[in-house]
């Protein structure tokens, strides 16, 4: 088998599997940029996966399913926002609690929805003309769905918002130094709430993508720990949407290869590869000069109260 087919298959799978990771990572980047660590991604995703499937199944509209999945994720994330922003509670614990609650609720509500195929999933599409471009065509324009493209478009948009707009400056200021932001008239609480809710929305959408497009059916526990990978990817991406794309796609490529390369390497060890690789890349990056420019938001996971600090 030629190298071209290897590249085509690997990259095309990279887009398909990387997309849900990327969507949720983009959301978490915004939450963390505003200074709120949300370890509840897994919980929000599974709630999205459940509600997205139920809506798509009962109405026959997959896009409505994805939208509702996002809304449910957003609503669900308000719990975390309330507890960690308003009540100023520990964000690590609150996030873990959100994961537990989400996995539990989706499991309870999802009873009886297992084993049903979704007849109206978001379909794969083949873009005419473009798909016949050699190599690039089959990777980009064959067998992917619209969500994949929309997510790719979202990356530069969110990058622009974060680094080139007023609201982006406010978000980053709130995450770096809420007291300064506050003194400049930025409403810290509002920004934090909005970012957490936006993160919840995207986590929900990512979950919905799983149950409506990626594998159109519902089974409890179907997110299978992807939410934790998202937490890691957010850090891996240095809280930057562009690197978020690179990280998600890199992880997805390694994940695909962990099945592809099984003929040569022991499958158990191969499956550990994406996780080890993430650490190795970080070590590599840390050697360079990039390190200083790309620290975590200084006020990440620190609650803010006016007049303290």
């Amino acid at each position: 088998m030629g190298w071209e087919t290897w590249i085509i298959a690997t990259l095309s799978r990279t887009l398909a599997y990387g997309t849900p990771l990327l969507i949720a990572t983009l959301g978490e980047i915004f939450a963390e940029r505003a200074g709120v660590l949300n370890l509840g991604v897994e919980g929000m995703m599974i709630m999205g996966a459940y509600s997205g499937f139920v809506i798509a199944y009962t109405t026959g509209h997959p896009w409505l399913g994805i939208l509702v999945a996002g809304v449910v994720g957003a609503v669900f994330s308000i719990i975390h926002a309330f507890v960690s922003v308003t009540l100023k509670a520990n964000q690590v614990v609150s996030g873990l609690a959100l994961t537990m609650l989400g996995l539990g609720l989706a499991g309870v509500l999802g009873r009886g929805w297992e084993g049903l195929p979704l007849f109206t999933p978001i379909h794969k599409m083949t873009v005419p003309v473009l798909s016949s471009i050699p190599v690039l065509g089959p990777i980009l324009f064959k067998g992917q769905n619209l969500v994949v493209y929309l997510t790719m478009l979202l990356v530069p948009v969110l990058w622009y918002v974060l680094f080139r707009t007023r609201i982006g400056i406010s978000i980053r200021a709130v995450g770096e130094s809420p007291a300064t932001a506050d003194s400049l008239g930025v409403n810290v609480t509002r920004i934090r709430y909005l970012c957490v809710i936006f993160g919840g929305f995207l986590a929900g959408v990512a979950g919905g993508y799983l149950s409506v497009a990626y594998r159109p059916s519902w089974t409890q526990g179907m997110t299978g720990g992807m939410g934790w990978i998202v937490i890691a990817l957010t850090i891996f991406a240095f809280w930057n949407p562009i690197y978020g794309l690179l990280g998600s796609y890199l992880f997805a490529a390694l994940y695909h290869l962990s099945f592809r390369l099984q003929a040569w390497v022991s499958p158990e060890l191969l499956k550990a590869m994406p996780y080890l690789f993430a650490i190795l890349v970080l070590i590599f990056v840390a050697q360079g000069t990039l390190k200083k420019k790309m620290g975590a938001p200084a006020a990440l996971s620190v609650p803010y109260t006016r007049g303290e600090e």
Binding site: V93, G104, V108, Q220
Partner: peptide, 14 residues
């Protein structure tokens, strides 16, 4: 359903 355990634990933690 055993998942209720998670719901309870989550609530208690919150």
């Amino acid at each position: 359903p055993f998942q209720l355990i998670n719901v309870f634990n989550g609530l208690i933690m919150f």
